[in-house]
Design a protein around this nucleic acid. Structure first.
Length: 282
RNA sequence: GCCGUGGAAAAUUC
């Protein structure tokens, strides 16, 4: 059963909903995971009616199924339906509360943030995810003071919450505070390292950025792209180009960054050339 | 053992 469930999830993730359905139908003894996996497959592909009918056809509802449905509605712009699901749930665990909090926070209007804050305060239980969700909301809106305040009052921090805080320092280029956070972390990964690199990039600190970049255990498109912007800030167009040419992989953002290095440094010919090479534009 | 919630890069706006 679990092998089939995994298949359902994988098909769902790569958009082959029909395959997911077929695998699901072939499972003789479906369990919760099978149902939720199919539900998730439909929801992830924007097929809400089908997701809803899977949901309604389930033998019983638990908080995981309801939460998946709630998120499905929200991600497809149906906020009121999401809200309806949440408040009619019989059982809510932290993850359901967190999911609903994230839904509110992702609506950009300011009154949603207030609503989110109120929800946060009325929640029966909060975990790191709860705190990080709200922290991210303040960070996204550039409310650095609130972000830091929240971070400092968190009962516990983990890799992700620290990374979110680091990322919040990027806009202001607050290297001092960012370093404090980074040093305090007991665990780091490519994402947190890239977040710190982005702070260096913001301030154009070439030496430190390079040192940090070379100490990173692993690199990917994002970290390389960030390093390119460091070079760009220092008007080191050739170095940027060298890195660009040697990186293992490109995407729309990395190509756009390289393009901007050229345009911002008055090298229009090369910009045009890069532009023409791009497989897609936005 | 398999499902649902939070974190990093470009330009544009602030």
């Amino acid at each position: 059963v679990f092998v089939s469930n995994m298949l359902v999830q994988r098909y769902g993730r790569c958009g082959s909903v029909e395959h997911a359905r077929r695998v699901f139908d072939s499972i003789p003894e479906k369990n919760f995971f099978s149902w939720v996996s199919l539900l998730g497959a439909y929801a992830a592909n924007g097929r809400l009616d089908e997701a809803a009918s899977v949901f309604n056809g389930m033998p019983e509802w638990n908080s995981v199924a309801c939460t998946a449905m709630l998120v499905g509605y929200a991600q497809n712009g149906q906020l009121e339906k999401a809200r309806g699901v949440f408040w009619s749930m019989k059982q809510r665990d932290v993850a359901s509360w967190n999911a609903f909090l994230a839904v509110l926070v992702n609506e950009r209007e300011d009154h949603r943030l207030l609503e989110a804050r109120k929800l946060f305060e009325t929640m029966p239980a909060r975990d790191v995810v709860t705190w990080t969700t709200l922290l991210g909301a303040y960070a996204q809106r550039n409310h650095l003071f609130n972000t830091k305040e929240l971070f400092d009052s968190m009962p516990a921090r983990d890799l992700i919450s620290c990374t979110a805080m680091l990322a919040a320092y990027e806009d202001s280029g607050d290297l001092r505070n960012a370093s404090v956070v980074f040093k305090s972390m007991e665990e780091r990964d490519i994402i947190s390292c890239s977040a710190l690199l982005a702070v260096y990039a913001q301030g154009g600190h070439l030496e430190q950025a390079l040192k940090h970049y070379h100490s990173m255990p692993e690199l990917n498109v994002i970290s390389c792209t960030t390093m390119i912007t460091v070079y760009s800030k220092n008007r080191l167009v050739n170095q940027a180009q060298q890195l660009f040419d040697s990186m293992p992989e490109h995407n729309l953002v990395s190509r756009t960054s390289m393009l901007c290095v050229f345009t911002l440094n008055d090298r229009l010919e090369e910009a045009k050339h890069e532009f023409d090479k791009m497989p897609e534009w936005n």
